[in-house]
Measured scan of single mutants.
Amino acid sequence: HRQALGERLYPRVQAMQPAFASKITGMLLELSPAQLLLLLASEDSLRARVDEAMELII
């Protein structure tokens, strides 16, 4: 289940942060499945989480 969510998330994360897409997707997969579904449904929520992840990385 998580694998399938990751496969759906990755291209969207890659479009926002290509250099760190794998790392960010891995970080996002730590969230609950319900939270992941919310990110897939909301571009704004996904962008906010990706921005948060980038702050942790750099």
Rank of each mutant, 00 (worst) to 15 (best):
H1I: 10
H1W: 07
H1V: 09
H1E: 12
H1M: 04
H1C: 11
H1L: 09
R2Q: 10
R2H: 12
R2K: 15
R2I: 15
R2S: 14
Q3S: 13
Q3V: 14
A4P: 15
A4K: 14
A4Q: 13
A4H: 14
A4D: 15
A4N: 13
A4V: 13
A4T: 15
A4C: 10
L5V: 08
L5Q: 03
L5A: 04
L5R: 01
L5N: 04
L5Y: 11
G6T: 07
G6S: 13
G6N: 07
G6C: 13
G6W: 15
G6H: 12
E7S: 07
E7K: 09
E7C: 08
E7P: 03
R8L: 15
R8C: 10
R8G: 04
R8Y: 08
R8T: 07
L9S: 00
L9F: 06
L9W: 03
L9M: 05
L9T: 02
L9D: 01
L9I: 09
L9C: 02
L9K: 01
Y10I: 02
Y10E: 03
Y10K: 07
Y10W: 11
Y10V: 04
P11I: 15
P11E: 15
P11C: 10
P11W: 05
P11F: 14
P11R: 15
R12H: 12
R12W: 09
R12E: 07
R12N: 06
R12Y: 09
R12L: 15
V13Q: 01
V13R: 00
V13L: 03
V13C: 03
V13G: 04
V13A: 01
V13F: 04
V13D: 00
V13N: 00
V13K: 03
Q14P: 02
Q14V: 07
Q14N: 09
A15L: 12
A15W: 05
A15P: 02
A15F: 11
A15G: 06
A15V: 11
A15Y: 10
M16W: 04
M16Q: 05
M16I: 10
M16S: 03
M16R: 02
M16T: 03
Q17S: 11
Q17W: 11
Q17P: 01
Q17L: 08
P18L: 04
P18Q: 04
P18W: 04
P18M: 07
P18D: 03
P18T: 06
P18E: 07
A19D: 09
A19N: 09
A19L: 06
F20P: 02
F20R: 02
F20A: 05
F20T: 02
F20V: 03
F20G: 02
F20C: 05
F20Y: 13
F20Q: 04
A21E: 02
A21H: 02
A21V: 04
A21Q: 02
A21K: 01
A21Y: 04
S22N: 14
S22V: 12
S22E: 15
S22I: 13
K23N: 05
K23D: 10
K23I: 13
K23R: 10
K23W: 05
K23F: 12
K23P: 03
K23S: 12
K23A: 14
I24W: 02
I24K: 00
I24L: 05
I24S: 00
I24V: 04
I24Y: 00
I24A: 00
I24N: 00
I24T: 00
I24D: 00
I24C: 00
I24E: 00
T25W: 05
T25F: 10
T25Q: 03
T25P: 00
T25G: 01
T25R: 11
T25I: 11
T25C: 05
G26T: 12
G26V: 10
G26F: 12
G26I: 13
G26D: 15
G26Y: 08
G26N: 13
G26C: 12
M27E: 02
M27I: 07
M27A: 11
M27K: 06
M27R: 02
L28T: 00
L28P: 00
L28K: 02
L28C: 01
L28D: 00
L28Q: 00
L28S: 05
L29Y: 02
L29N: 03
L29R: 02
L29E: 03
E30V: 06
E30F: 11
E30R: 08
E30T: 08
E30I: 07
E30K: 13
E30S: 12
E30Q: 09
E30L: 10
E30G: 08
E30P: 01
L31V: 04
L31Q: 06
L31C: 06
L31W: 03
L31E: 08
S32F: 07
S32C: 08
S32K: 11
S32W: 08
S32P: 08
S32R: 05
P33M: 15
P33I: 15
P33G: 05
P33L: 12
P33K: 10
P33T: 11
P33S: 15
A34C: 11
A34E: 15
A34S: 14
A34G: 11
A34I: 12
A34N: 09
A34M: 10
A34Q: 08
A34R: 05
Q35S: 07
Q35I: 14
Q35N: 13
Q35C: 11
Q35G: 05
Q35H: 05
L36K: 02
L36T: 05
L36F: 04
L36E: 01
L37F: 07
L37V: 11
L37G: 09
L37T: 07
L37C: 08
L37M: 15
L38N: 07
L38Q: 14
L38E: 10
L38I: 11
L38G: 13
L38Y: 10
L38M: 12
L38W: 06
L39W: 02
L39R: 00
L39N: 01
L39D: 02
L39K: 00
L39P: 00
L39A: 08
L39Y: 02
L40E: 05
L40Y: 02
L40C: 04
L40N: 02
L40G: 02
L40Q: 03
A41I: 10
A41K: 05
A41Y: 14
S42M: 03
S42G: 06
S42E: 09
S42Q: 05
S42R: 03
S42F: 12
S42N: 12
E43V: 08
E43H: 05
E43D: 09
E43L: 05
E43I: 09
E43C: 05
E43W: 09
E43M: 08
D44S: 12
D44R: 06
D44P: 05
D44A: 14
D44I: 12
S45F: 10
S45Q: 14
S45D: 11
S45L: 10
S45G: 06
S45A: 14
S45K: 14
S45V: 07
S45Y: 12
S45N: 10
L46Q: 00
L46C: 01
L46H: 01
L46V: 01
L46R: 00
L46M: 04
L46D: 00
R47Y: 03
R47A: 08
R47C: 05
R47I: 09
R47W: 06
R47V: 06
R47P: 01
A48Q: 07
A48W: 04
A48D: 12
R49S: 11
R49D: 04
R49A: 09
R49M: 10
R49G: 04
R49L: 12
V50D: 01
V50W: 01
V50M: 03
V50L: 14
V50P: 01
V50S: 01
V50H: 00
V50E: 03
V50Y: 01
V50K: 00
V50R: 00
D51W: 07
D51K: 15
D51F: 09
D51L: 12
D51S: 06
E52S: 06
E52R: 04
E52A: 07
A53R: 02
A53L: 13
A53T: 11
A53C: 11
M54A: 09
M54C: 07
M54V: 09
M54E: 01
M54Y: 07
M54Q: 03
E55V: 12
E55P: 00
E55C: 06
E55T: 13
E55K: 08
E55W: 12
L56C: 08
L56Y: 11
L56R: 12
I57L: 07
I57D: 01
I57E: 02
I57N: 02
I57Q: 02
I57T: 02
I58N: 13
I58W: 14
I58V: 07
I58M: 09
I58L: 12
I58F: 10
